[in-house]
Design a protein around this nucleic acid. Structure first.
Lengths: 203, 203
DNA sequence: AGGTTCGCTCAACGCCTGTAGAGTCAGTCG
DNA sequence: CGACTGACTCTACAGGCGTTGAGCGAACCT
């Protein structure tokens, strides 16, 4: 468990280790309080390190944020909805720290806003390419936005009905409903059974 | 157009007017940059007023934010989805300034987070009371979260497919899809209290 | 008309921030 | 073993912040 306990012998390795410790601390603080409200001193304290060392390692607070909030974006064009659920994580797990940091600041830090815009637009493009019919872009954007909203409501606002959710409920209600926007059926006045959970779609 | 141009004669009226000017400036700044990144001086400059006057009027920056970001919450139990679309505004209009201020800071300012939690939980409660069937809470939360996501994606991140949207497209795609999560048609019986006191979950 | 009120500005305070540069001491190496 | 390197800490600074209290002058009251 204790990854910190094992202290490397060589100097370079120790340096790399503290750099990593600083990065993790930064991700946590940024993810919890956002870019503005997070102080370099708070990061340093959490990493058990002097504030100036944080700067020596990463140049500036903003540079550190840029690294700490960087999503690793792989573009799997297939299995889009699954990947979406994975990346924006409506699942039961915690959010990965870098995602948390980025989302937390996306409304207040211009650089985070930009990164999020790019990321989401990318997802929308991928999705809309994968589906067919009229308003493909709109329906893709609908799905992506909803997953974003779900993520925020669940992981950042702690909406009751979403925090107590089970895998089974996701399968029964959330997933079919989300994928519904990707189908063409939306133009109908109201699709009869797609969202009705009376009879769960059997896997 | 010039609502500011007409200067009231009485002293009290003038004071009230500048108070209003400060409030509007605060809403704009908070809505654009968030609580942390907004300075009292910036608000004062925008209101063409000395920074200290802002404090004299509203006590502190945080008090001012609390007032500037206060949503007027009427609880109309009927026509829930319509009201939801109205309040969280997936429509074509701009967001009302106080909504914008609150949403902008909801991920970084604890007080805003709390206000948003209360607001959304309230909406979820109202919705889930109005619909029937299993997982009513979950389906209500799904809808509310999605509207939140749509609002953010549209008004704060500017997702292409959502900014260029037309009323017709909303009617055709967004609304039916959103209401789909609610199960039955929204215009269906809302006061099901008498008919449905409690419903045991049927697996 | 003259004294009082009070909305507003001015100047300044103490605090906290990000960051720079000098100093320190353990690890490294010939 | 002694000199050096470099990862880290210490000290400090300049700038911006929210907020305060004194002062000014126009509006107000009698």
């Amino acid at each position: 468990m204790d990854a910190d306990a094992t202290e490397p012998r060589t100097r370079a390795a120790r340096r790399a280790a503290t750099a990593q410790r600083i990065l993790k601390a930064a991700q946590f603080e940024f993810g919890e309080r956002g870019l503005d409200a997070t102080t370099v001193r708070a990061i340093a304290t959490r990493a058990r390190v002097d504030p100036s060392l944080v700067i020596q390692h990463y140049g500036s607070k903003n540079d550190l944020f840029a690294i700490a909030a960087q999503l690793h974006r792989e573009s799997t064009d297939e299995d889009v909805i699954e990947h979406l659920l994975d990346v924006l994580d409506v699942r039961l797990n915690e959010l990965p720290p870098e995602t948390r940091a980025l989302v937390r600041s996306m409304l207040t830090a211009p650089e985070a806003t930009l990164a999020m815009q790019e990321f989401l637009n990318e997802r929308v493009k991928g999705l809309s390419r994968a589906i067919e019919g009229v308003d493909a872009d709109l329906r893709a954007a609908l799905t992506v936005s909803s997953v974003l909203g779900l993520t925020i409501a669940r992981h950042f606002l702690g909406l009751h009905a979403l925090t107590e959710i089970s895998e089974e409920q996701i399968a029964r209600t959330v997933r079919p409903w989300l994928t519904a926007a990707l189908g063409e059926d939306t133009t109908a006045p109201r699709s009869a059974d797609s969202a009705r959970p009376e009879q769960p779609p059997t896997p």
